[in-house]
Computed example of a mutant assay.
Amino acid sequence: MTDSDNLQQIAHLRREYTRGGLRRKDLPEQPLDLFEHWLRQACDAQLPDPTAMSVATVDENGQPYQRIVLLKHYDRQGMVFYTNLGSRKAHQLENNPRISLLFPWHMLERQVMVLGRVEKLSALEVMKYFHSRPRDSQIGAWVSRQSSRISARGVLESKFLELKQKFQQGEIPLPSFWGGFRIKIDAMEFWQGGEHRLHDRFIYQRDGEGWKIDRLAP
């Protein structure tokens, strides 16, 4: 099969979206209420990693980067994830706090996009979550200087075993280079697949103390 044949096959991959629609009359006033409903349905459907989200940041040259991160908490204050503060995404967020998230719930023919700005979590919030993690995950946070170059996987494995021995007894301390971010939400867009590519898209945008809701063309 030639490259041209492969491209032709990809170009013709499509299917109808038939799981249901989304109507303006059914939307709650608060976007997080709809997000919570959809997330619960994603969990009930036993989708793999329903809290996985693509996190997009931009470097100092305007180059976008994306990676998958797990959502760990959300409420009216925003959405929370944790990371190594020396990582590429953390450095980029220090220079440009604007961020975009995407929850790709393909099996339900849905996706949710979030636009906002980040703020660092307090040391108390970070410590509380860190010590709720499995012990090996806490050690893993110490092992990885995220985004730094390493010669081989064996470097990580050796360091993990070394630190597991070191922290064999007692509480594992919180690394100074590990923390988290809260996304203060400016907008949320909900996408529900529809037949004949007539998808339903609604965007919530902050409007004073409330939210302005608009339907978008698919």
Rank of each mutant, 00 (worst) to 15 (best):
M79G: 08
W38L: 01
G193K: 07
D49S: 10
V112C: 14
G20L: 02
Q77K: 09
A42F: 11
Q165H: 09
Q165T: 10
R135K: 09
Q46R: 06
I99D: 03
G180I: 01
N84S: 14
E60W: 01
H37K: 14
V80R: 05
R182P: 09
E36Y: 07
V69G: 05
A123Q: 12
V118T: 15
D33K: 12
F160D: 00
P134Q: 01
S100E: 07
E109W: 02
Q168F: 09
K128L: 13
D5G: 05
E125P: 04
I183V: 15
L198R: 06
K212Q: 14
F167Q: 01
E119R: 13
A90H: 03
P48Q: 04
I10C: 11
Q30L: 13
K72V: 03
I213R: 08
V126C: 15
A217Q: 10
D136H: 12
G21H: 05
E29P: 04
P48W: 01
M113T: 06
F181H: 10
S122G: 14
R135Y: 05
F167E: 00
A123N: 12
R153W: 05
P64E: 00
V69L: 15
R15G: 13
E16K: 03
Q63V: 14
P134G: 09
P64K: 03
S137G: 12
L124N: 08
N61T: 08
E157K: 04
V126S: 15
H131S: 11
G116S: 10
F35V: 02
F177T: 06
R206T: 06
S87N: 02
G193A: 14
Q9D: 10
L32F: 14
L198P: 06
S144F: 04
A42Y: 07
L124Q: 14
W105M: 02
E162G: 08
H131P: 06
G154D: 09
I139D: 03
L121Y: 04
T83N: 07
L115G: 15
V69W: 04
M1V: 13
D49L: 07
G208P: 11
S158I: 00
L32N: 08
R76P: 00
G170Q: 03
L163N: 06
H131V: 04
E94C: 09
G154W: 02
P50A: 05
K159L: 08
E36G: 15
W211H: 07
V155T: 12
P50Y: 01
K184N: 13
D186Q: 13
L71R: 05
Y204S: 06
E125G: 10
T83E: 03
W105S: 02
A52E: 00
L161A: 15
E36C: 15
H12E: 12
V80F: 10
V126A: 15
A90C: 06
W38C: 02
S4I: 09
M53S: 09
E94A: 15
W178H: 07
D5Q: 14
W38I: 00
V55I: 08
T51A: 12
T2Y: 12
F160C: 05
S87C: 05
